[in-house]
């Protein structure tokens, strides 16, 4: 079937849009936006409710009103004094940055190995990398804990990030795609200049891959900041707690079955959530890029 035979009227009636954009009638667009406004409200409501309820006093915390009246900023002061929130925030930052930095650098090194060199067994090895992406983490939970226990580090923060020193499958895959996309000429030039492999990697490949490395960094920062299971397994001393682990303690103590001071739980939840919201607003395009690379 040939598109040349298309009736002229049909092509004239449609507005000229870029090729990737779907052609949508104005009516469909209005309906779509309307449906999105409704679902968008449903998705945004819990977050607005969270902030609002964290500013309510105990008598009003269950009222589901969107505007707190009276506004109780005291909740934040109270929870700040009741638990070592600042310490937990600092711990979360340290663990998060360590996890993100190590994952970024090690995954870049490994990805470069897969992207730039041909060697026997490369496809098998890369298949193995992809296979570990599918491997259920629950299977290695116990033995890896026992390994850290054997070297005397099981109750430190090190197990929360140190595994990232060895590259992570998803990030290796992602960065390999970026390295493969680099023009071969830059590497040929480096070779003519007599640069070694390490030098070519550090001076030429890495600087060109900074956007992709930011993708890895923000993804891993978010993963480490929000993780609960590893802190539950490893951290015993409350001084070492990360924010989610601390928040679990707050939830148990002030929330369900505890002293029933939900406004404090919600204030702490807001404190734990806000940095991630900000991270997304500032790094949105990197998150989207990470999800849509294939």
């Amino acid at each position: 079937m040939s598109l040349v035979e298309a009736p002229v009227a049909a092509t004239v009636a449609e507005p000229a849009e870029s090729i990737e954009k779907p052609r949508t009638h104005a009516g469909t667009r209005v309906l779509s936006v309307l449906a999105l406004v409704l679902t968008g409200a449903a998705f945004l409501y819990p977050l607005i409710w969270l902030i609002s309820s964290s500013l309510k006093d105990r008598a009003h915390v269950f009222d589901n009103a969107l505007i707190p009246d009276p506004v109780a900023f005291g909740n934040y002061v109270e929870v700040w004094q009741a638990v070592p929130l600042l310490l937990w925030i600092v711990n979360s930052l340290l663990v998060g940055v360590a996890a993100a930095a190590t994952a970024t650098i090690s995954s870049a090194v490994v990805a470069y190995g897969f992207a730039r060199f041909r060697f026997r067994g490369r496809n098998v090895m890369f298949g193995l990398v992809l296979a570990t992406m599918m491997l259920p983490g629950a299977v290695t939970m116990v033995p890896v804990y026992l390994e850290w226990h054997a070297v005397g580090l099981a109750t430190t923060q090190i197990p929360l990030w140190a595994q990232n020193l060895f590259g992570s499958a998803f990030y290796v895959f992602l960065l390999r795609q970026f390295f493969l996309g680099l023009p071969g000429e830059v590497f040929d030039a480096a070779k003519v200049d007599g640069a070694g492999h390490l030098r070519t990697f550090a001076r030429i490949a890495l600087p060109l891959t900074v956007p992709a490395m930011i993708v890895v960094f923000v993804f891993e920062l978010k993963a480490a900041w929000t993780d609960l299971i590893k802190p539950l397994i490893y951290l015993r001393d409350t001084d070492f707690y990360t924010l989610p682990r601390g928040l679990k303690t707050i939830l148990d103590r002030f929330g369900e079955g505890g002293e029933s001071q939900w406004e404090l739980v919600l204030a702490a939840s807001t404190i734990a959530t806000a940095p991630m919201i900000l991270l997304f607003l500032f790094a949105q395009r990197y998150f989207v890029r990470g999800l849509t690379t294939q």
Binding site: P46, L47, K222, W225, L266, A272, T273, I277, L279
Partner: peptide, 22 residues
Amino acid sequence: FRTVLYLPVMTPPVALAAMFLL
């Protein structure tokens, strides 16, 4: 709307647990 839909993904699961209990 893409931003709005993605914000819940950024919320730490423990905070999510506290919120949805209520």
